[in-house]
Design a protein around this nucleic acid. Structure first.
Lengths: 145, 145
DNA sequence: GAATAAAAAGACCTTTTTATCTTTATTTTG
DNA sequence: CAAAATAAAGATAAAAAGGTCTTTTTATTC
């Protein structure tokens, strides 16, 4: 449903939010360790997210990743849009290029309806709300042993 | 949302159903032409579908693909299960291995709810119902020019 | 049974995604 | 300013998905 890199991105950003709230700015190494992702690859993903302005970064000693007013609130939809591209949201369910209400594929309208609930979720849920779930003990960011 | 090969599979099967209803059994060449897919690759996909018993085939002159009582009805869910694997339906939204209600990822329960509508659609819609849409002129199987 | 037609099978090739390693640029600290 | 820490960038590699080509097997028709 989501590419692995998108999953890493979301997990990383939630972790950053959690640490920011404690007054810390995690670096790639710490992020990768905590969300169980490959370190260098996670670095690449963070580059994309930073370049696209979804999160901010500081180089050098004491540097790391953090959110500020310009980046908040950050919905899952924004992240998915950056990581998967616009087509994620409007691609035809059977892979037709010209699929629309004029010449619909056989599952066109039902598919749109079904996707809507999923996309609503992606719009409503934010890095902040997901982080809150973790803080409240309602969710975990890494597998318990 | 679905792999390209899964999209090809669904389109191919709908086309086969349409031709079966006219008393014909299309071969790989005709299928690929009609659903606008690469011929050899489509052949590979048909092999999988046939081997898994979702459709039947005959070799030799006059051969081709067709459905019979043993294969009907054929829901999208069955096709997706064969093409994408079981994990398509129960994979965690953020990619965690051990994600369940005991140690949920931050979007666990909402994600399950949102997916349900999509999966219901996949269960309800069948190759027969999709073919009917096309026959009724409500949908097309290839792009109009 | 020879010719033909078609699916099946196997060996490749290409592109995309995921992942690693090395080097460079930037920032902080002493 | 030197050392250390860290993100950014670049080159490469490994794995998966998508795609092609050739040969083999099976069936039909004459």
């Amino acid at each position: 449903m989501l590419a692995k890199s998108t999953e890493y991105a979301i997990r990383a950003l939630v972790f950053i939010e959690l640490l920011n709230q404690e007054g810390n700015r995690p670096g790639v190494k710490q992020i990768a360790r905590e969300i169980a992702s490959p370190e260098a690859y996670t670095g690449k993903i963070m580059q994309i997210l930073t370049k696209q302005g979804l999160v901010r970064s500081m180089k050098g000693r004491g540097g790391g990743f953090f959110f500020d007013h310009a980046t908040r609130p950050l919905s899952l939809q924004k992240i998915i849009r950056v990581m998967e591209g616009e087509s994620y949201f409007n691609k035809c369910g059977l892979g037709f290029n010209g699929c629309d209400s004029h010449a619909p594929c056989p599952i066109h309208s039902e598919y749109i309806t079904a996707k809507k609930e999923l996309f609503d979720l992606f719009e409503k849920q934010t890095i902040e709300s997901l982080a809150q779930n973790v803080k409240d003990g309602l969710a975990v960011l890494n597998r318990p042993m």
